[in-house]
Amino acid sequence: MISELVMVPTDEAVLTGDLVVPGHVPAVVLFAHGSGSSRLSVRNRAAAAELHKAGLGTLLLDLLSEREEREDAATARHRFDIPLLSRRLVAALEWLAQEPNTRDLPAGLFGASTGAAAALMAAAERPERVYAVVSRGGRPDLAGDAIERVAAPVLLIVGGSDEAVLGLNREAAERLSAPHEIHVVPGATHLFPEPGALEEVAEVAGRWFLAHLKERRGPGGRRA
């Protein structure tokens, strides 16, 4: 099992990430956290732990540098800069494609809140690299026109009591040409703090990634 702190270079900054590859995995999932969050998000780390149990690797990445985090805390100038966050995810996808432990693995994207929009934009930019996308309480509407160019299957997970975001997800789903589903967690609010809600998120996300990984592979288990 590989578990290490990694540094991912981008054009504007070097980003810190936590890479976990639990043995011989078939794919790696790159997490894109939401506004005001980080790779240390309790919710994302809990979801990542469940994906490890399902046999998937993960990379939890700080999409902002320490300096940018400080600026964002004071001004909120970066958290809604979806093109910036998307560029960081694309750089991370390229890094994963070069690293010895992940270079032969297809990548999934798991976005939360504004990070979901960045994940969709990155998936549109790198269709050959991204095989599936999951959004948790996301804002896919913020991906703009890029949402119409996403080729990877998309799962939109929303709390049943998060009515405003649920409406935005339903509207965004109508613009997706890729295979997609909306999974509503009954009674859950935006951050899924209700008993069992995060566990349901992790379970359905893992099923989505594994199901579409199988579709990505050709005869003999090779990547199609």
Score class of each variant (00 low, 15 high):
I2Q: 13
I2P: 03
V6M: 09
V6A: 10
M7C: 15
V8G: 15
V8P: 06
P9E: 12
V14P: 03
V14Q: 15
L15K: 05
G17T: 08
V21H: 05
P22L: 14
H24N: 12
P26M: 09
V28R: 11
S35W: 06
S35N: 11
G36Q: 09
R39I: 03
S41C: 00
S41A: 03
R43K: 15
A46W: 03
A47H: 05
L56R: 08
L64Q: 11
S65W: 10
E66Y: 04
R67F: 04
R70Y: 06
A74I: 02
A74K: 14
A76E: 15
R77P: 08
D81L: 07
R87Q: 14
R87C: 03
R87N: 11
A91P: 01
A92S: 13
E94D: 15
A97R: 10
Q98I: 01
E99S: 13
P100N: 08
N101K: 11
N101E: 12
R103M: 15
D104Y: 07
L105P: 02
L105W: 01
A112K: 01
S113M: 03
S113F: 00
G115Y: 04
G115K: 03
L120I: 13
M121A: 15
A122D: 06
A124N: 06
E125K: 07
E128V: 01
V130Y: 05
Y131M: 15
Y131P: 06
A132R: 02
G137F: 01
G138W: 04
R139A: 15
P140T: 07
P140N: 06
A143S: 10
A143R: 03
D145K: 14
E148T: 14
E148P: 01
V150R: 07
A151Y: 04
P153Y: 11
L155E: 09
G159S: 05
S161I: 00
G167Q: 09
L168E: 11
L168N: 08
N169W: 02
R170S: 12
A172W: 00
A172N: 02
A173L: 14
L176F: 05
S177K: 09
A178Y: 01
A178D: 08
P186I: 05
A188N: 05
T189R: 01
L191E: 11
P193M: 00
P193F: 00
E194C: 00
G196M: 02
A197N: 04
A197G: 05
E199G: 08
E200F: 00
A202T: 07
A202N: 13
W208N: 12
L210P: 02
A211P: 01
K214N: 14
